[in-house]
Design a protein around this nucleic acid. Sequence first.
DNA 1: CGTTTTTCCGTAAACGTTTACGAGAACACA
DNA 2: TGTGTTCTCGTAAACGTTTACGGAAAAACG
Lengths: 341, 341
Amino acid sequence: MASSIHDLARHLNISIGTVSRALNGRADVNAETRQRVLEAARTLNYSPNQSGRSLRQGATRSIAFMLQPHPGDQQYGEPFFIPFLTGLQAQLAEHDLDLMVVMGEPGQYQPERLRRVVETRRADAVVLANTRREDDRIDYLSKAGFPFATLGRSQSGGDTYPSLDIDFERAGEEAVDRLVARGHRRIAAIRPSLDLNFGYLFLDGYRKALRRHGIEVDPGLIADGFINETGGYQVTPRVMLSKDRPTAIIFNNDAMALGGCKALAEMGIRPGHDIAVIVIVDTPLCRYFSPALTAFRPSLEPMGRRLAEMLLASLPAFAGPEGTRIIREVWPLELVARESD
Amino acid sequence: MASSIHDLARHLNISIGTVSRALNGRADVNAETRQRVLEAARTLNYSPNQSGRSLRQGATRSIAFMLQPHPGDQQYGEPFFIPFLTGLQAQLAEHDLDLMVVMGEPGQYQPERLRRVVETRRADAVVLANTRREDDRIDYLSKAGFPFATLGRSQSGGDTYPSLDIDFERAGEEAVDRLVARGHRRIAAIRPSLDLNFGYLFLDGYRKALRRHGIEVDPGLIADGFINETGGYQVTPRVMLSKDRPTAIIFNNDAMALGGCKALAEMGIRPGHDIAVIVIVDTPLCRYFSPALTAFRPSLEPMGRRLAEMLLASLPAFAGPEGTRIIREVWPLELVARESD
DNA sequence: CGTTTTTCCGTAAACGTTTACGAGAACACA
DNA sequence: TGTGTTCTCGTAAACGTTTACGGAAAAACG
């Protein structure tokens, strides 16, 4: 069915070496024979077998992208990743690289699926998502000497790998700034309880801005919940029942915000009227929720493209002439003002 | 770094043939030597190089999943695919198969990216999403003799490949039944204008149910729009301005419904009060929209698992003992009654 | 003990590439 | 004409597997 380099060679009565060199644009092949080879390749519908090529070159020309659900959660960060993946894929495609998707096993953090891909050498590098503050996947990949990049910062592994993150700290600050400017002083912060780095970053920014405005940080206004709707639903009342009720809440996650708003509704508190609500990472859900939630929006598709670039620049086989490796990059979020604050 | 079968052989002072046979559970190897090989594999941290294996066996042990955006759209069917992909991946992982994601080039239907994967033999089979009524990808794969399965029915290719679809026809019927039971007689239908098969199926069910209830099908109440929010926004007024205004609208797509509701709001018409709205395929957006949209919900994750099963059963290398190939399967949707109807 | 069967293992080819090496032919130059 | 250079190509090894084949040793059988 599929023709090989041998078929071409036989058809043209030349050696496979010449055929290969002709196809790969090597200099030491006569212009005329190159033409004949290329033409034969077209008529015989030849394209190189990737397995053979990978075996010989020790590179698969494919990059793995790993999603990992958080324990207890079934979602893989649903609305977040498709746009990111779109950008990642588009950029990789420009380098003729394919994309493989690895999903961690739900309910646990063991990087078994990742290990399989690495050990069987199915991909040349890995992009990690759902990065945690301490991430055993990073430790594993570092130790294995396997190239990777991460979406989201981590404390694991040092500054040895490219990572691209959203500026949660600054978003936390800006959210507080905006609320203070609108007269709020009692501002609550609700973030995920797991070992997610962005929860810490967000809180840093939140605290920093409060202090800057001379507002005391009230631990009663800070709460952690599970990173989904239920978590937001459960934890929001806790903050609302503190002695001096907050007039604003910043949610560090869209799903938690939706759950929180449900709890607020049940308490008869209307976001946008009785309380201000801001969400740190915008998703389509924030836009269509009623009231539409004011949120900070990342540019996921460009981020996907960018992280692909950063990863490729860190791979010797792809490193550009200058060889400037980009290690960390933090992108700002854009405030989308809607009705909830 | 990575150890090969030769390393094991050298280490144990036996031949690579024996090592391979031991690892692959062949019968013609002594029980004791097999133990030694397995132990050495563990201590030397051996795992087989997939490129070598693929080359020899002519199979890559990976399945490609292809998303294709519709022309003019940047979205790849965003909220729909992650749960489906989760199920697909989970089932494939049970067979030690990896998943590769191919995204069609935005703005065109040419299956170039797909062709690349097929011709370089990067995957053993393909799962197609965003299936159209006449789908050149199906024609291409059929002609190439490459195994595939589709999410969604098509008219291309005949009954030669496994496909799994949602029962849009029945959902259209049930939507009409529900609305008629609630007293509606003027029911509009809004569906995507592209060559998407489910738009036709939905309309069949819609018409069938109307006739069954003795209601004349009014062409003025049926409209096509582009399959996104803008399309719904543009086309909904057209239906509302027909001489005898409808009292209910069935949207064949969540994004179109959201755009339609925006148009309705601007006309001062409130879904759930002034008009009934039902959406055929539920997404999280329907749930959080205000008013929450009554919708028909698919079970995407089980569907992903199922389609993986169907695909594997159609592959000679995986076909079970009975070899019963499942060609087509159509799954029902579940009505989720909310506030909009 | 001789013959047949079974058990176990080594040899080598094959999958489809790429590439180091060398060699023949053509050419340039003195 | 002799020497060196350039152009072009063929040869063969290598990447890491799997597997058909055959053969030696052990076991079974008469």
